[in-house]
Design a protein around this nucleic acid. Sequence first.
DNA 1: GCAGGAATTTGAATCGTTTCAAAAGCAGAG
DNA 2: CTCTGCTTTTGAAACGATTCAAATTCCTGC
Lengths: 343, 343
Amino acid sequence: MPNMKQIAKMARVSLGTVSHVLNNSAGVREPVRMRVLEAVRAVGYRPNQLARGLRRVRTSMIGMIIPDITNPFFPAVVRGAEDIAFSNGYRLILCNSDNHHSKELAHLNELRAYLPAGLIVIPSNFSDLTAQTDVYRRAGAGVVCIDRLPTNWSGDSVTANNEQGAYKATRYLIQLGHTTLATITGPLHLTNATDRLCGFKRALRGAKLKLGPEYVQEATFDKNGGYSKTAILLRLIPRPTAIFAANDMIALGALLAIREAGLRCPEDVSLIGFDDLDLGETTNPSLSSVSQSGYQLGATAADILLSRIKGDTGPAKHIVLGTSLTIRNSAARAPEIERSIFQ
Amino acid sequence: MPNMKQIAKMARVSLGTVSHVLNNSAGVREPVRMRVLEAVRAVGYRPNQLARGLRRVRTSMIGMIIPDITNPFFPAVVRGAEDIAFSNGYRLILCNSDNHHSKELAHLNELRAYLPAGLIVIPSNFSDLTAQTDVYRRAGAGVVCIDRLPTNWSGDSVTANNEQGAYKATRYLIQLGHTTLATITGPLHLTNATDRLCGFKRALRGAKLKLGPEYVQEATFDKNGGYSKTAILLRLIPRPTAIFAANDMIALGALLAIREAGLRCPEDVSLIGFDDLDLGETTNPSLSSVSQSGYQLGATAADILLSRIKGDTGPAKHIVLGTSLTIRNSAARAPEIERSIFQ
DNA sequence: GCAGGAATTTGAATCGTTTCAAAAGCAGAG
DNA sequence: CTCTGCTTTTGAAACGATTCAAATTCCTGC
C-alpha cells in the first residue's frame, strides 16, 4: 500500500505539503500541487482512513442502529441513509438491535471505539438513549433519532407525521360509513405507535364516535401480532366493520385472520395499514395504507448528520415528514344492510 | 475517552503489560492481570479500534457489497452475515452497488483505506473482481463471493444450488402434466440466472420435451422484467401453460401480467418462482417457489471469512447450499381439456 | 545463598496521518 | 543591498494502540 511518505518523496516535497494538498488546508503553489497530485494518481494513493481518523479523532463512518434489516420497512431507510452518506464520502456501519436493550447498548458502546462521525438510530426505547449517546455528543459526533423517539429526546430527529397519517386513514374509514371501528396498535412504548393511536382517536372524536377499550388492541409490529389480535377483535359484539392496523405487517396478519374467520375483506371487514410496503400491492385484496417514505427518513437523517459534522451547532432539528393515503381495495363502504339484519 | 496510558498508570504497570492483558498475548501474573482488568472496568475502557487497526494493519470490519438492500432477497443475507460477524466482534460496512460497474469499483477502492479484515461480495460481474480484489488478498484479507460468482472466480464462495432448485421446480410442473413450459430467466451474465436456466433445461430434457427459443425470455430480476416478458410469453402459440420464473420478483410481475391478460393463475397458467420470499405467502394465489436461505448464505460467508482471518489458508471453499420446493397455490395441473378445445 | 533458566514486565519503535510552530522563500519598499 | 511582511514549505510532535528485544523478577536445584 502506498503511503504519504512515498508520495512526498516522489513529488520531492515534505509530508506536510502532501497533506495540505490532499486537504486544501494551506496555500500550495500550483506547480507543487500538480506534482503531488500527479504522484497520487501515478500510484493510486488513498489516505489511510485509520491513521487519519486516529489523528483527527473522528472518522468518516456513520453508525446506523436499526431494529432488524429483515423487517421490510427498514431497508429503504438504510438505503436512503447510505446514498447520502456515500455520496459525501461517508460509509455506514450497520447494526441490528432486535429492539433488545442489551444489543442496542452493546452496539452503542462498541461503535464508539471506531470514532464514527455520527450515529443514526431507530431507538428501542428500552435504554436511556440520551445518556448513552452523551459520550458521542461530547466527542462532537452527531446523533439523529428516526422513525420513533426515545422518551425525553431533545436531539435531532426525523419522523413521519404518524398522528396525521393515522387520522387520515381513520377519517377515510369513517367517511366510508363505518361506525364500529377498531385499531391494532404497535407496542405502546414506541412513540410511532402511540402517535398513530392518537390520530385514530382524534378522528373518532371528530366524528363523535365512542369506542370501548376492547376495540383497541396492542400488538407487536408483525404478522403474528396482527393475526392474534384480529382474532380477538372479530369475536367482539358488535363486530368491528373496519380495522386500522398500525402497520402493514399487522394488516397482513389481520387479513389472514379475517379470511380464516370465514369473513371477507373488504365486504365484511375493511382494513387499512400503515407504511405502504410493496407487498401491499400484491395481497388479495390489495392493501390500502398510509404511505410514508422510509428512504426519505434515512436520507434526511443523513443530511442532518452531515450538516452537524460540517459544524452546524444550531438548535435541535425535528423534521416531520408528511404522509399520504394510498387507496387500494382493502377498505370499502360499511356493510349497512347486513349489519342491521344480523345484529 | 480513556486510553491505555491511563489504564497503565491506574494499574501501575507499563503500556506493554496492559496490551498483553487485553490480548492474552503473554503470560501475565494473575494479580497483575486483575489489577489491569479492574482498571479497565473502572473507567469503561475500550481499545481504540483505529489505533489498533493502524498498528495491526487490519481492523475488525468486514466490507459487504451487495446490489441493493432494498431488493427483498438481500436483507436476510446481510442479517446472516451481521449476526455472525457481530457475535465474533466484527462489524459490517454496508455498500450498495446497484449492479453498477463504477459503484462496485468505487466501493472496492475506498473500502481498502479502512483496512477491513475481509470482504463479502455479491458481484455484479461487470468488473474483473479477481483483479480488483487482489490487493485485498495480498494484504491478507479474505474475500468471499456469494449468491452468484464472477467469471473465473477461484476464491471462496457460497451459493445456493440454483441448478438443482430450478430442476425441482420444473420437474414439478412437468409432473403436473404441463408440456408447454416457458421460463423467464434473470440477466444471463449472472451465474445464478444461467444455473437456473440449466436446471430448467435439464428437467425438460429428462422429460423429452422440446422448446422453441422464444419460450425462454431473459429479464431483469424485478417485477417490471417479469411483467413485460410474461406479456410476450402469453402471446405465443401454443401459449405456455406453465412458467418458471427465475425469482419471486419476476413471478410477481408475471402474476400481474397474467391477470391483466384476462387469464387466471393457476387455472390457465401455472407459475413457480425462486427465493421463497415472505411476500409470496400473501399474494393471490400464493406463490409456489424454490426456497433458499438468504440468511444461511450470509452467515456461511461470514463463517468462512472468519476462518480465513483466523489463519486458515487451505484451498478455496465452494459451499453450495441446498434448496427445497415450497408448494403453495400458483401451480396446478395442466388444463388438458381446454387446451385441446382451443388449440 | 547463589547460579541459571524460565517467566514476567518494560520501553521504545512503529503504523500513517494531521497540525502547528518555525524556517525558508519571495516581493516590494527604502 | 537590506529590511519587512507575506506566502510557502518543512519538520516534529502528536493520535493510541501493538510488538519485540531487552531488562527484570521469580523459581528451582544445588
